[in-house]
């Protein structure tokens, strides 16, 4: 290679490397932006209550006030609130994983009259925010007599249009040959779904599980609408009530917020590998 050729090759390498560095820098800045509030929440939950409003942020408390946690938990029945949130979020997550998988399979791999319109109607429901459907949904739940019940809290979210779409898209990429090979091997439709299709959709299923758990774990507006009794209150409602009733130091509220973050983080950690692959599938981030 001529000297000028060598120079241009090394310049191209340098350019590529600097572009890589620039990308990493941008990602680091973005990650910093996401992590700072969480770190702030974490450290502030151990601060003394009166240090909360100081202008300068103290990242490492001079004294660690672990009692913020026990105080917050003793003032209000948060264990019950967490249990309620957990029951609702797990019920919705399991139901979404089951029903969205079945519906997605039907829409992805079977042709029936009007199948495209069924998909369009399902997708159309994605365009309507909860605020729009809140009153009619409330009236339905009220009509069922489900106010102040777990089924009232979870019912409207048991099958999610986004989940159906996500699973359909994931299954569309699975060649029909697998299904036909399994049919010839003697497998029935349910076995094909469970043993051939689902194992190939685990990333999408993991994304669906994390999303549906997260969305329902910290759901606020719907529980506020259908729950008036303390025994069915979920933790976001409990947190608001806690703030209103006790005017308690925000450090204790943040202690509850830290505890509330743990289940979602744990679920993400458990499913992390599959979720990371699934984000690519769903085009989500």
């Amino acid at each position: 290679m001529s000297p000028s050729g060598k120079r241009s090759a090394s310049f191209a390498r340098l350019k590529l490397r600097s572009r890589g560095w620039l990308g990493s820098l941008l990602l680091a800045a973005l990650a910093f932006g996401f992590v700072v509030p969480i770190l702030w929440m974490l450290t502030t939950s151990f601060q003394a209550g009166d240090r909360m409003y100081e202008l300068s942020t103290v990242w490492i408390p001079s004294a660690w006030h672990f009692e913020n946690y026990s105080n917050a938990l003793s003032r209000s029945p948060f264990s019950q609130y967490f249990l309620n949130s957990g029951i609702v979020a797990i019920a919705v997550m399991v139901s979404n994983v089951v029903f969205c998988t079945i519906a997605g399979y039907g829409l992805a791999k079977f042709r029936f009259p009007g199948d495209r319109y069924v998909l369009l109607v399902i997708l159309a429901t994605l365009m309507l925010p909860l605020e729009v459907t809140l009153v009619p949904t409330f009236l339905v739940i009220h009509g069922f007599g489900w106010l102040n019940t777990y089924q009232g809290l979870a019912g409207p979210f048991l099958i999610d249009a986004f989940g159906v779409f996500l699973m359909r898209q994931s299954m569309l990429s699975i060649p029909a040959d697998y299904i036909e090979a399994a049919r010839m091997d003697g497998a029935g439709e349910l076995r094909i779904l469970l043993q051939i299709i689902v194992p190939q959709c685990l990333p999408a299923l993991a994304v669906l599980a994390v999303f549906s758990f997260r969305d329902n774990w910290d759901q606020f507006l719907w529980p506020l609408t259908v729950v008036s009794q303390d025994e069915f209150r979920t933790f976001p409602l409990g947190l608001v009530r806690f703030a209103e009733d006790y005017g308690s130091p925000p450090t204790e509220q943040l202690a509850i917020a830290v505890l509330a973050t743990i289940p979602t983080v744990l679920l993400f950690v458990v499913l992390q590998r599959a979720v990371n692959r699934g984000f690519g599938l769903s085009g989500l981030k």
Binding site: P175, D177, Y178, A181
Partner: peptide, 19 residues
């Protein structure tokens, strides 16, 4: 039904279950 025909097929893309 295909499963009851006692016929086996080799597909163009093999269709070996990847998992």
């Amino acid at each position: 039904a295909p499963k009851d025909r006692d016929i086996a097929m080799v597909f163009q893309n093999y269709a070996l279950y990847p998992h």
